[in-house]
Amino acid sequence: MNIFRLAGDMTHLVSVLVLLLKIHTIKSCAGISLKTQELYALVFTTRYLDLFTDYISLYNTVMKLIFLGSSFSIVWYIRRHKIVRRSYDKDQDTFRHYFIVLPCLVLALLIHHKFTFKEVMWTFSLYLEAVAILPQLVLLQRTRNIDNLTGQYVFLLGAYRALYILNWIYRHYTEPHYVHWITWIAGIVQTLLYADFFYYYFQSWKNNVKLQLPA
């Protein structure tokens, strides 16, 4: 565990908890894409299948349980909570799941390290995580006016990815056989998706104006 990895995990954790807390306290999910949240729930479910078979560390197990629990709680709030679900803007959040899920599944079946159920599911989760933010980015682009919390949520998620890249560079130099190109390529693609958002986020922060994305 290095400082980049820990900072990345903490940023990821804070992003998810900020979102859950926001939904819980203001009883609104305005600006949040249910599609992205469902994809994340699927990402964690397929990635953490090893929760039942392998033990890595207490830290690892606890974090996995938090990510699983929080992602399913968010989906539950948006779909089932009687007040929260009213604020969900279904008409704007139109991205199709299968449009993302199917290509990732096909890719995972074709490109993986080992052809076992667990390994293919793990690889699928990496590909899926790389693009799961797309419905959220499309929603931000459409609504244009982004409230602070949604902006911070997306910013924290992007920061988490950037920190993971630093972690891989660090591990590559400190651990002799640390070469995981599937993880790296998926991670770099994922981080690049945030580049555009980051640009406007920093602009708005620098000029001290409300974050708006161009149409």
Partner: peptide, 10 residues
């Protein structure tokens, strides 16, 4: 090379 990634990342 033997593949031995232990999936220690989240």
């Amino acid at each position: 090379r033997h593949y031995d990634y232990d999936h220690d990342e989240l």
